[in-house]
Simulated assay, not measured.
Amino acid sequence: MSVAPAGRPPASAESAAALGLAPLLTTPRARPGWLVLPARVGAMCLVELQKLRHDRTELYTRAVQPALWLLIFGETFTRIRAIPTGGVPYLDFLAPGIIAQSAMFIAIFYGIMIIWERDSGVLTKLLVTPTPRAALVTGKAFAAGVKSLMQAAVVLVLATLLGVSLTWNPLRLLGVAAAVLLASAFFSCLSMSIAGIVLTRDRLMGVGQAITMPLFFGSNALYPVDVMPDWLRAVSAVNPLSYQVDALRGLLLDTPSHLLLDFLVLLAAAAAGITAASCLLGRLAR
Protein backbone atom coordinates (compact mmCIF):
# COMPACT_ATOMS: atom_id res chain seq x y z
CA MET A 1 0.00 0.00 0.00
CA SER A 2 1.59 3.26 -1.17
CA VAL A 3 1.44 6.41 0.91
CA ALA A 4 1.70 9.89 -0.55
CA PRO A 5 4.88 11.69 0.51
CA ALA A 6 4.52 14.06 3.41
CA GLY A 7 3.74 17.65 2.39
CA ARG A 8 2.44 16.56 -1.00
CA PRO A 9 -1.30 16.86 -1.78
CA PRO A 10 -3.18 13.69 -2.73
CA ALA A 11 -3.45 12.78 -6.37
CA SER A 12 -7.10 13.79 -6.48
CA ALA A 13 -6.21 17.29 -5.30
CA GLU A 14 -3.42 17.50 -7.91
CA SER A 15 -5.79 16.49 -10.69
CA ALA A 16 -8.45 18.93 -9.44
CA ALA A 17 -5.90 21.74 -9.48
CA ALA A 18 -4.86 20.76 -12.99
CA LEU A 19 -8.48 20.99 -14.13
CA GLY A 20 -8.95 24.36 -12.47
CA LEU A 21 -11.46 22.98 -9.94
CA ALA A 22 -9.49 23.78 -6.81
CA PRO A 23 -11.72 26.75 -5.84
CA LEU A 24 -14.70 24.39 -5.78
CA LEU A 25 -12.99 22.04 -3.33
CA THR A 26 -11.81 24.65 -0.84
CA THR A 27 -13.94 26.17 1.86
CA PRO A 28 -14.61 29.85 1.11
CA ARG A 29 -13.34 32.31 3.64
CA ALA A 30 -16.11 33.49 5.93
CA ARG A 31 -17.14 37.13 5.70
CA PRO A 32 -16.95 39.30 8.81
CA GLY A 33 -20.27 39.34 10.66
CA TRP A 34 -21.02 42.96 9.81
CA LEU A 35 -20.73 42.21 6.07
CA VAL A 36 -23.12 39.25 5.98
CA LEU A 37 -26.37 41.21 5.94
CA PRO A 38 -25.30 43.79 3.30
CA ALA A 39 -23.93 40.96 1.13
CA ARG A 40 -27.24 39.10 1.26
CA VAL A 41 -29.20 42.27 0.56
CA GLY A 42 -26.97 42.90 -2.45
CA ALA A 43 -27.38 39.34 -3.66
CA MET A 44 -31.17 39.57 -3.49
CA CYS A 45 -31.09 42.88 -5.31
CA LEU A 46 -28.94 41.40 -8.10
CA VAL A 47 -31.28 38.42 -8.44
CA GLU A 48 -34.20 40.78 -8.97
CA LEU A 49 -32.33 42.87 -11.52
CA GLN A 50 -31.33 39.76 -13.50
CA LYS A 51 -35.00 39.41 -14.41
CA LEU A 52 -34.92 42.87 -15.97
CA ARG A 53 -31.90 41.96 -18.09
CA HIS A 54 -33.86 39.17 -19.76
CA ASP A 55 -36.91 41.34 -20.49
CA ARG A 56 -36.50 45.10 -20.94
CA THR A 57 -40.04 45.61 -22.24
CA GLU A 58 -41.15 46.97 -18.87
CA LEU A 59 -38.74 49.90 -19.12
CA TYR A 60 -40.07 50.95 -22.52
CA THR A 61 -43.76 50.58 -21.75
CA ARG A 62 -43.52 52.40 -18.42
CA ALA A 63 -41.86 55.37 -20.12
CA VAL A 64 -45.05 56.11 -22.07
CA GLN A 65 -47.11 57.44 -19.16
CA PRO A 66 -44.61 60.02 -17.83
CA ALA A 67 -44.01 61.16 -21.42
CA LEU A 68 -47.73 61.81 -21.82
CA TRP A 69 -47.90 63.72 -18.54
CA LEU A 70 -45.05 66.00 -19.58
CA LEU A 71 -46.01 66.42 -23.23
CA ILE A 72 -49.77 66.89 -22.81
CA PHE A 73 -50.56 67.91 -19.24
CA GLY A 74 -47.37 69.87 -18.66
CA GLU A 75 -47.32 71.73 -21.97
CA THR A 76 -51.04 72.56 -21.76
CA PHE A 77 -50.98 73.94 -18.22
CA THR A 78 -47.80 75.87 -18.99
CA ARG A 79 -49.71 77.74 -21.70
CA ILE A 80 -52.87 78.49 -19.73
CA ARG A 81 -50.98 79.35 -16.49
CA ALA A 82 -53.85 78.09 -14.34
CA ILE A 83 -51.73 76.92 -11.40
CA PRO A 84 -49.55 79.40 -9.49
CA THR A 85 -46.03 78.02 -9.09
CA GLY A 86 -44.14 81.01 -7.70
CA GLY A 87 -42.51 82.15 -10.93
CA VAL A 88 -41.34 78.67 -11.95
CA PRO A 89 -42.63 77.51 -15.36
CA TYR A 90 -45.27 74.86 -14.80
CA LEU A 91 -43.42 72.27 -16.90
CA ASP A 92 -40.37 72.73 -14.67
CA PHE A 93 -42.57 72.51 -11.58
CA LEU A 94 -44.21 69.32 -12.90
CA ALA A 95 -41.09 67.37 -13.93
CA PRO A 96 -39.95 66.35 -10.40
CA GLY A 97 -43.52 65.32 -9.60
CA ILE A 98 -43.61 63.06 -12.64
CA ILE A 99 -40.29 61.49 -11.63
CA ALA A 100 -41.80 60.68 -8.23
CA GLN A 101 -45.02 59.45 -9.79
CA SER A 102 -43.34 57.10 -12.25
CA ALA A 103 -41.14 55.67 -9.48
CA MET A 104 -44.18 55.09 -7.28
CA PHE A 105 -46.11 53.38 -10.08
CA ILE A 106 -43.24 50.91 -10.55
CA ALA A 107 -42.93 50.13 -6.84
CA ILE A 108 -46.56 50.07 -5.75
CA PHE A 109 -47.34 46.83 -7.61
CA TYR A 110 -44.13 45.04 -6.57
CA GLY A 111 -46.12 42.78 -4.26
CA ILE A 112 -47.53 40.98 -7.31
CA MET A 113 -44.07 39.52 -7.89
CA ILE A 114 -43.99 38.24 -4.29
CA ILE A 115 -47.34 36.50 -4.76
CA TRP A 116 -46.10 34.98 -8.03
CA GLU A 117 -43.01 33.69 -6.22
CA ARG A 118 -45.27 32.20 -3.54
CA ASP A 119 -47.40 30.44 -6.15
CA SER A 120 -44.34 29.05 -7.96
CA GLY A 121 -42.68 27.85 -4.74
CA VAL A 122 -39.71 30.22 -4.95
CA LEU A 123 -40.69 32.17 -1.83
CA THR A 124 -40.82 29.04 0.33
CA LYS A 125 -37.29 28.10 -0.75
CA LEU A 126 -36.04 31.60 0.03
CA LEU A 127 -37.59 31.59 3.48
CA VAL A 128 -35.82 28.36 4.52
CA THR A 129 -32.39 29.80 3.72
CA PRO A 130 -30.32 31.43 6.50
CA THR A 131 -30.97 34.85 4.94
CA PRO A 132 -33.05 37.00 7.33
CA ARG A 133 -36.46 38.06 6.08
CA ALA A 134 -35.45 41.69 6.45
CA ALA A 135 -32.59 41.07 3.99
CA LEU A 136 -34.97 39.45 1.49
CA VAL A 137 -37.38 42.35 1.71
CA THR A 138 -34.64 44.99 1.61
CA GLY A 139 -33.04 43.41 -1.45
CA LYS A 140 -36.34 43.38 -3.30
CA ALA A 141 -37.14 46.93 -2.15
CA PHE A 142 -33.87 48.37 -3.44
CA ALA A 143 -34.19 46.40 -6.67
CA ALA A 144 -37.45 48.30 -7.16
CA GLY A 145 -35.47 51.44 -6.39
CA VAL A 146 -32.91 50.69 -9.10
CA LYS A 147 -35.72 50.15 -11.62
CA SER A 148 -37.19 53.46 -10.53
CA LEU A 149 -33.83 55.15 -11.06
CA MET A 150 -33.81 53.93 -14.65
CA GLN A 151 -37.30 55.37 -15.08
CA ALA A 152 -36.21 58.65 -13.47
CA ALA A 153 -33.29 58.91 -15.92
CA VAL A 154 -35.74 58.59 -18.83
CA VAL A 155 -37.94 61.37 -17.41
CA LEU A 156 -34.90 63.60 -16.82
CA VAL A 157 -33.76 63.19 -20.43
CA LEU A 158 -37.26 63.86 -21.75
CA ALA A 159 -37.68 66.92 -19.53
CA THR A 160 -34.33 68.28 -20.73
CA LEU A 161 -35.41 67.83 -24.36
CA LEU A 162 -38.57 69.80 -23.56
CA GLY A 163 -36.49 72.68 -22.23
CA VAL A 164 -36.87 72.15 -18.47
CA SER A 165 -34.08 73.91 -16.56
CA LEU A 166 -32.66 71.11 -14.41
CA THR A 167 -29.41 71.06 -12.51
CA TRP A 168 -26.72 68.55 -13.47
CA ASN A 169 -24.62 69.02 -10.35
CA PRO A 170 -23.29 65.53 -9.48
CA LEU A 171 -23.89 65.95 -5.75
CA ARG A 172 -27.47 67.05 -6.32
CA LEU A 173 -28.04 64.14 -8.69
CA LEU A 174 -26.79 61.80 -5.96
CA GLY A 175 -29.38 63.34 -3.68
CA VAL A 176 -32.04 62.75 -6.34
CA ALA A 177 -30.98 59.10 -6.58
CA ALA A 178 -31.16 58.73 -2.79
CA ALA A 179 -34.66 60.25 -2.67
CA VAL A 180 -35.89 57.97 -5.45
CA LEU A 181 -34.36 54.87 -3.83
CA LEU A 182 -35.83 55.58 -0.38
CA ALA A 183 -39.30 56.42 -1.67
CA SER A 184 -39.35 53.38 -3.97
CA ALA A 185 -38.24 51.18 -1.08
CA PHE A 186 -41.18 52.44 0.98
CA PHE A 187 -43.79 52.00 -1.76
CA SER A 188 -42.53 48.53 -2.74
CA CYS A 189 -42.60 47.46 0.93
CA LEU A 190 -46.11 48.91 1.21
CA SER A 191 -47.07 46.72 -1.73
CA MET A 192 -45.41 43.64 -0.19
CA SER A 193 -47.17 44.34 3.11
CA ILE A 194 -50.53 44.54 1.33
CA ALA A 195 -49.67 41.28 -0.46
CA GLY A 196 -49.11 39.67 2.94
CA ILE A 197 -52.61 40.74 3.96
CA VAL A 198 -54.72 40.12 0.83
CA LEU A 199 -52.71 37.04 -0.35
CA THR A 200 -53.96 37.07 -3.98
CA ARG A 201 -52.90 38.96 -7.08
CA ASP A 202 -56.43 40.08 -7.99
CA ARG A 203 -57.01 41.64 -4.58
CA LEU A 204 -53.60 43.29 -4.63
CA MET A 205 -54.31 44.80 -8.05
CA GLY A 206 -57.59 46.20 -6.75
CA VAL A 207 -56.05 47.68 -3.61
CA GLY A 208 -53.06 49.03 -5.53
CA GLN A 209 -55.27 50.80 -8.05
CA ALA A 210 -57.43 52.15 -5.22
CA ILE A 211 -54.52 53.81 -3.39
CA THR A 212 -52.25 54.84 -6.27
CA MET A 213 -54.20 57.83 -7.56
CA PRO A 214 -55.15 59.16 -4.08
CA LEU A 215 -51.45 59.05 -3.15
CA PHE A 216 -50.57 60.92 -6.33
CA PHE A 217 -53.32 63.55 -6.23
CA GLY A 218 -52.96 63.88 -2.45
CA SER A 219 -49.38 65.09 -2.87
CA ASN A 220 -47.73 68.24 -4.17
CA ALA A 221 -46.74 66.58 -7.46
CA LEU A 222 -49.25 68.54 -9.60
CA TYR A 223 -49.89 71.68 -7.56
CA PRO A 224 -48.28 73.50 -4.64
CA VAL A 225 -49.47 72.92 -1.10
CA ASP A 226 -50.55 76.58 -0.81
CA VAL A 227 -53.51 76.11 -3.20
CA MET A 228 -54.81 72.95 -1.49
CA PRO A 229 -57.89 72.95 0.76
CA ASP A 230 -57.15 72.33 4.44
CA TRP A 231 -58.19 68.66 4.38
CA LEU A 232 -55.93 67.96 1.39
CA ARG A 233 -53.03 69.72 3.11
CA ALA A 234 -53.48 67.30 6.02
CA VAL A 235 -53.34 64.36 3.59
CA SER A 236 -50.24 65.79 1.91
CA ALA A 237 -48.51 66.24 5.28
CA VAL A 238 -48.62 62.46 5.95
CA ASN A 239 -48.00 61.39 2.35
CA PRO A 240 -44.36 60.26 1.78
CA LEU A 241 -44.73 61.13 -1.90
CA SER A 242 -45.01 64.83 -0.97
CA TYR A 243 -41.66 64.72 0.81
CA GLN A 244 -40.04 62.98 -2.13
CA VAL A 245 -41.38 65.61 -4.56
CA ASP A 246 -40.26 68.43 -2.28
CA ALA A 247 -36.75 66.97 -2.13
CA LEU A 248 -36.61 66.47 -5.90
CA ARG A 249 -37.73 70.03 -6.60
CA GLY A 250 -35.20 71.46 -4.19
CA LEU A 251 -32.38 69.39 -5.70
CA LEU A 252 -33.25 69.68 -9.39
CA LEU A 253 -34.73 73.20 -9.57
CA ASP A 254 -33.09 74.82 -6.54
CA THR A 255 -36.50 75.94 -5.25
CA PRO A 256 -37.14 76.45 -1.50
CA SER A 257 -37.44 73.04 0.17
CA HIS A 258 -36.90 71.21 3.46
CA LEU A 259 -34.25 68.68 2.47
CA LEU A 260 -33.32 67.52 5.97
CA LEU A 261 -36.96 66.91 6.92
CA ASP A 262 -37.68 65.31 3.54
CA PHE A 263 -34.88 62.77 3.84
CA LEU A 264 -35.63 62.02 7.49
CA VAL A 265 -39.26 61.26 6.61
CA LEU A 266 -38.27 59.12 3.61
CA LEU A 267 -35.71 57.21 5.68
CA ALA A 268 -38.22 56.58 8.48
CA ALA A 269 -40.89 55.53 5.96
CA ALA A 270 -38.50 53.08 4.26
CA ALA A 271 -37.47 51.57 7.61
CA ALA A 272 -41.10 51.22 8.70
CA GLY A 273 -42.02 49.66 5.36
CA ILE A 274 -39.19 47.10 5.54
CA THR A 275 -40.20 46.18 9.09
CA ALA A 276 -43.87 45.74 8.19
CA ALA A 277 -43.14 43.72 5.02
CA SER A 278 -40.67 41.48 6.90
CA CYS A 279 -43.29 40.69 9.55
CA LEU A 280 -45.95 39.86 6.96
CA LEU A 281 -43.71 37.94 4.55
CA GLY A 282 -44.10 34.61 6.36
CA ARG A 283 -47.88 34.86 6.09
CA LEU A 284 -47.62 34.47 2.33
CA ALA A 285 -45.81 31.13 2.64
CA ARG A 286 -48.34 29.45 4.95
Rank of each mutant, 00 (worst) to 15 (best):
T57D: 04
S2N: 13
C45I: 04
T76P: 02
V36G: 02
T78W: 05
A18P: 05
A82C: 03
A82H: 03
L19R: 11
R40Q: 13
T78P: 00
L25C: 00
G33F: 09
V64T: 04
L70W: 01
W34Q: 07
S12L: 14
R53E: 08
L71K: 01
T61Y: 12
A6M: 06
P38W: 07
F77A: 00
T26Q: 11
F77S: 00
H54S: 15
A4I: 06
K51Y: 12
L19N: 08
T61N: 05
E75D: 05
R53P: 00
L71S: 11
R56I: 14
W34V: 13
R62Q: 14
R31K: 09
Q65R: 02
F77L: 10
V41C: 11
E48F: 08
A6I: 04
A63Y: 01
A67E: 02
L59C: 07
E48C: 07
A11M: 13
V41E: 09
R40T: 03
F73P: 00
A11Q: 12
K51Q: 15
T26C: 02
L25N: 02
L70K: 00
Y60W: 15
L71V: 09
R62D: 10
T61L: 14
A16H: 01
T57M: 07
R79E: 08
R29C: 02
I72S: 08
A11R: 14
R81D: 10
Y60G: 08
G74F: 05
L25E: 05
A18T: 12
G42V: 11
